[in-house]
Design a protein around this nucleic acid. Structure first.
Length: 511
RNA sequence: GGCUCGUUCGUCUAUCGGUUAGGACAAGCGGUUUUCAUCCGCUAAAGAGGGGUUCGACUCCCCUACGAGCUACCA
């Protein structure tokens, strides 16, 4: 029977969600949309010790900013499988744990964390680096496979804390198909008797994830590579429950690596290297440490998801700039690369620049409105739209755009004195005030009109354009960089241009 | 240490046994531009190493090296 495609992104709210998490969510989303399925957001908060206030909201906010919208889930309207927060689903898991206990696929263990630590420490001391609770060791431990039934009952009755562990087969190959990596095999002798239910009655990720995926009718589990090692346990759980028929397809994504050195990109890297590794800025509620975000850095969400989508996936053609719709259209898990991708901030910048350039001037004007107003500039739509037309090719980030052409909104703050010293010399310097008149009296105030009039003046005086233009540019903008001079004059307007020119010229005398 | 996964230009990647190994970012050079940016053109740049299989391997197999993930009553 063909089942409707249903995928989920299941982060745990233990801090801000990393770029890698966004990419996982994105791939889930793209696959769901591609196949006409549902995308679900489920919060895996089974570890109450690691709860971080605000983290869940952060996840929701970043998905919203990125335009990765779940059909069901926390923050996006509950669907038929509510609740979507595992802590709220707590009462449901016991039934499944009991099922496993009854069928003999799981057992009860009384060992305390301290005893287990001791066990591991002893093993390490004796040169065994990897002690595990398994078919061979469980008989020496305190559990329902080693203890008499009446003692087990007595311990439970008197309130001893216990956990439920999965009874891992002793030596069995577990083979499963991964959509990205093809067939993967593990031998159960390498796997341990994982805890399924903690002493506080909360399931571990392993149990909760399998039960929830089953209950929520998930068809594809797309998650990070860090889960590959525990995938065989999950497969075994599906079998133990008798759910193998509806076991989801697995797809394990490679990790995003740090730009320099080795290892996966981590929270520290971002700010160490001068760029963000989070979608949104995050302030740690405890330490108040700030981790910068792409949104605040001036990234457009479309550029951000386009870029991270290509970190480990490509459509198989040479197309790089893609809208979300195009990505959906091209997406396929088979085209996801197996190896880890090293993150390259330079290319990320290029993507953003491409997107900024493509935004219509008037839309761009709206987008930088708040930034301009915040700086105390008066916002005039037509003026700012024209400003955007002139400046957008020079901006990489949205934030740049509201800054690089500040001289269109206020007086020049700093002058390029090198150019002034070099160019503000006789005979040109003594004739420059004529340019002020030229502007004031110019009948055709269009860009070409100005240019024609100016060039005629230059020729009439026997100057070269290069003698005068740089001075004009610095007088108007303070810098040698910027849009064409006559475009600047045109936008600034007759009065403003003349006034600024006059002012700057008298300043030039003092340099 | 053990297990698992991975390895094409500096970076992201294409190639699904036969190609001058292609594209993009970054770099360098040149053009356009009064300047900067944009844009355009060009250049340099790769199959980790060793064995097989094959008429023929980047592509399939094995070994080695290197990298990564996992190895919790964390996810």
């Amino acid at each position: 029977m063909e089942r409707k495609v249903r995928v989920r992104y299941a982060p745990s709210p233990t801090g801000p969600q990393h770029m890698g998490g966004v990419r996982t969510a994105l791939y889930n989303y793209l696959l769901a949309k591609k196949l006409g399925g549902d995308f679900i957001l489920r919060i895996e908060d089974t570890d109450q010790n690691r709860f971080v206030p605000g983290a869940e909201q952060y996840i929701i906010d970043s998905l919203k900013w990125c335009g990765i919208t779940p059909n069901e889930g926390i923050g996006f309207g509950d669907g038929p499988h509510a609740p979507y927060r595992q802590s709220e689903r707590k009462p449901m898991y016991k039934k499944y744990s009991d099922m496993l206990l009854e069928s003999g696929h799981a057992y009860i263990a009384f060992d305390t964390p301290e005893e287990l630590d001791q066990m591991r420490a002893n093993a390490t001391a004796q040169g065994v680096p990897n002690w595990q609770y398994s078919a061979v060791t469980r008989q020496y431990m305190k559990n329902s496979t080693s203890l008499p039934a009446d003692e087990v009952k007595a311990r439970i009755d008197r309130g001893d804390q216990y956990v439920v562990r999965f009874k891992m087969p002793r030596n069995e190959d577990v083979k499963f198909h991964d959509l990205i990596r093809s067939w993967v095999t593990f031998n159960t002798s390498q796997l341990d008797d994982k805890v399924l239910m903690k002493h506080d009655g909360m399931p571990t990720y392993h149990l909760a994830n399998v039960v929830d995926d089953y209950l929520m009718q998930i068809t594809h589990v797309i998650r990070g590579e860090e889960w590959l090692s525990s995938a065989p346990l999950h497969v075994l759980l599906y079998r133990a429950f008798g759910w193998e028929e509806v076991m989801p397809n697995f797809a394990h994504l490679s990790l995003i690596l740090k730009p320099d050195g080795n290892g996966k990109l981590s929270k520290r890297d971002g700010d160490r290297l001068g760029f963000p590794s989070f979608p949104l800025t995050w302030i740690d509620p405890e330490t108040k440490e700030v981790s910068s975000g792409y949104r605040e850095r001036g990234y457009l969400p479309e550029a951000f998801i386009n870029f991270i989508a290509l970190l480990g996936w490509n459509p198989g053609n040479d197309i790089e700039i893609m809208s979300k719709e195009e990505m959906i259209n091209f997406f396929s898990l088979e085209k996801v690369h197996k190896a880890g991708a090293r993150f390259d901030f330079e290319k990320a910048k290029w993507f953003n620049q491409q997107y900024v350039k493509r935004i219509p001037d008037d839309v761009l004007a709206e987008q930088i409105k708040d930034a301009l107003v915040a700086k105390g500039y008066t916002y005039e739509k037509a003026y700012v739209t024209e400003y955007c037309r002139l400046m957008k090719d020079r901006a990489v980030f949205l934030n740049d755009l509201s800054e690089i052409g500040y001289y269109f909104f206020e007086d020049v703050k700093t002058f390029d004195t090198d150019t002034i010293k070099k160019k503000f010399v006789t005979p040109v310097k003594d004739k420059l005030n004529e340019v002020v008149d030229l502007i004031t009296n110019c009948e055709d105030f269009s860009v070409t009109g100005l240019e024609t009039a100016f060039k005629a003046w230059v020729a009439a005086n026997g100057f070269k354009i290069g003698d005068v233009m740089p001075l004009l540019r610095v007088a108007l903008a303070g810098t040698m960089q910027g849009p064409p001079v006559f475009e600047m004059i045109h936008l600034l307007g007759k009065d403003k241009s003349a006034e600024r020119l006059k002012k700057s010229l008298s300043y030039f005398e003092t340099v």
